[in-house]
Write a protein that binds this DNA or RNA. Structure first.
Length: 424
DNA sequence: TCTGGGGTCCTAGGACCC
DNA sequence: TCTGGGGTCCTAGGACCC
């Protein structure tokens, strides 16, 4: 039995999300900015044509935005997450087995659909997603996940394919491998691409002609799997349920330079509480908490400082109160006066399922009470929004918070924002 | 030439992804 | 003035054990 996968990928996802709710943006260059309005993380095709690269610092294109040539948006993850759910639910109509690979990508297992007209089926998927959600997508269909990825990339690039490419014929697969540059292969990053090019491996096809032992020796077992996948042998399985995360991190750059302990303390407590909430959402607890702080690496004038501290807590927890408490102790251990800080973060690791926490006989925390309190806090947060209820250390001033000066309304999730659209 | 040998666990670091 | 924020897996090498 041969395998068959489709990779469905939203075109310019964040930019397209902004467009769905504001058709006036159609045909115009649109960019979406990272947190803190720092740099460009998504571009509409018109913005790409203007030559705006991924990751370009926003201040370098601010003039284009202010002169009206480009529309810029601060990232609005609530909106994007909701749009993503709508797209995935639509895709679920077309196969019982799918893997949500990222916020804008999904693998569909088309297992034994070889007998149907795949070209027509792929077009039906694309058209249905468009009709139901307003999201433009591209589809690549092939016998393995790596080939489906490659096929998807070609579907996007080729005017003839127009967003849908089915690669099942061996001759077509070979042709596709030949015209795919080695740097465009899924799983080949900058380091490996440079390494391979030096040895005159320039295309995906060149790569498939390497020996298994050579690839394994130089690129580990990960490279070997990729080699087999590109040759048509499926090695990567569909992961239908996301495994629980082994580490959870919340970190942000500050909206401005920060040099007061109080501000960093508030930010760090807020990040710790957010980690706790992420833990509760996946029904886990963590034993280790790490706090790090850093100054602005891009600043030539400021004195630089980076440090981190990990604390092993007596009992694995997912309580806001405990995590903010220990994060604060860690922060005090590494904080030094006299620096301008740019970023801090909290990481939790050694994660275990909530119901498998090792208890400690000397434990003085009333865990029953904490867990009930967290339940209430989560409910209030769901209803009234983030940080309406919080630990005192999180503060009320929050002058350290990020810049987000170009945010679109949360069209899909907030009544107030919906009204704004209706009134307009 | 040849310095005992083999197993496990942990960590740091390097590669990749979106 | 201004440069994102998450994650994963794999390997090498050291510590430790018998």
């Amino acid at each position: 039995m041969t395998s068959l996968y489709a990779l469905c990928d939203c075109n310019n996802f964040y930019a397209s999300c902004e467009r769905v709710f504001d058709p006036a943006l159609n045909g115009k260059p649109v960019v979406v900015l990272s947190n803190n309005d720092g740099c460009v993380i998504a571009r509409s095709s018109e913005a790409k044509e203007l030559g705006i690269p991924m990751g370009q610092p926003f201040f370098q294109i601010r003039n284009l935005v202010e002169s009206g040539q480009v529309r810029a948006f601060s990232s609005n993850y609530t909106l994007y997450g909701d749009m993503s759910n709508r797209v995935m639910q639509t895709l679920a109509q077309f196969t019982p087995n799918l893997e949500v690979y990222s916020i804008d990508e999904c693998f569909l297992d088309l297992g034994d659909f070889y007998s149907i007209d795949l070209q027509a089926y792929a077009w039906e998927i694309k058209n249905t997603v468009w009709r139901w959600t307003g999201m433009p997508v591209s589809l690549g269909v092939a016998p393995t996940k790596a080939l489906a990825k490659l096929s998807n990339k070609l579907a996007k690039k080729s005017g003839k394919a127009n967003g849908v490419l089915v690669l099942t014929d061996p001759n077509h697969i070979r042709k596709a491998l030949e015209i795919t540059k080695i740097d465009d292969v899924w799983g080949i990053g900058g380091q490996y691409a440079a390494f391979l090019k030096k040895r005159n491996i320039l295309t995906a096809y060149d790569f498939t002609n390497l020996s298994e032992s050579w690839v394994k020796q130089h690129m580990t077992i990960v490279g070997l799997r990729l080699l087999k996948e590109l040759r048509g042998e499926a090695c990567l399985e569909l992961e239908e349920v996301a495994p629980p995360k082994k580490g959870i991190c919340t970190s942000r750059s500050f909206g401005k330079r920060v040099n007061s302990f109080n501000d960093i303390q508030e930010a760090t407590a807020t990040y710790a509480a957010r980690c706790a909430r992420k833990l509760r959402r996946q029904k886990s607890c963590a034993r280790l908490v790490t706090v790090f702080v850093t100054t602005n690496q891009f600043s030539a004038n400021d004195r630089q400082y980076y440090n981190s501290k990990t604390i092993c807590m007596p009992v694995a927890t997912n309580s806001d109160l405990e995590l903010t408490y220990y994060a604060n102790i860690a922060l005090k251990a590494i904080y030094r006066d006299g620096y301008f800080y740019k970023k801090s973060g909290v990481m939790v690791t050694e994660i275990v399922p909530e119901n498998q926490v090792q208890l400690d006989l000397l434990d003085i925390v009333d865990r029953e009470k904490h867990s009930k309190l967290m339940e209430v806090i989560d409910e209030l947060t769901d209803r009234f929004g983030r940080s309406k209820v919080r630990v005192a250390t999180q503060g009320t001033d929050n002058s350290w918070q990020l810049n987000s000066n170009y945010k679109s309304p949360c069209y899909t999730t907030k009544i107030k924002d919906l009204q704004q659209v209706w009134m307009a």
